[in-house]
Amino acid sequence: MACVVVPMVEAIIVTIAKKIVQRKERKALGNSSSTETINTPMKEERQTLQMGLSWSRKLSWLNNLLWGGVFLLALEHIWHGEIILWPPFLTAMKNPADIQPMLEEMALFGTSMAIFVTVVWVIMIYIAEHKLKYNCTKIYLDD
């Protein structure tokens, strides 16, 4: 019914956190030049090899996972008529008897989705960092 709301709230929090972390990282880098703001995939890759995975990059992965999931799930809910594009937006809100089951669904399904995506993201980061360490050691040994 409205399970998509919980991951959406998490996505909003992660977006704000990402912006704050990004600003802090730019400050820490000393904003060396204005060209730093142009982030090409090649430049990002070079930066990652030099300094490791930045928190802003890690958070952007979670952000993309959450927003991508939320967007496609919202489409599915619109298709099934559970979400409408005008107030009150959630069809269940029209009938007071449907509000309680909607909240229960949000608590069970929505929270489980948000937790599962976050757990997968943590595993992803763990693997990526290990792979990065392995690649750095390989480059060091090759030199």
Partner: peptide, 14 residues
């Protein structure tokens, strides 16, 4: 990739 994987994970749980 992230867009599709995000939706896939959420639907898996659902």
């Amino acid at each position: 990739c992230f867009i599709y994987w995000g939706a896939t994970l959420m639907w898996l749980v659902d």
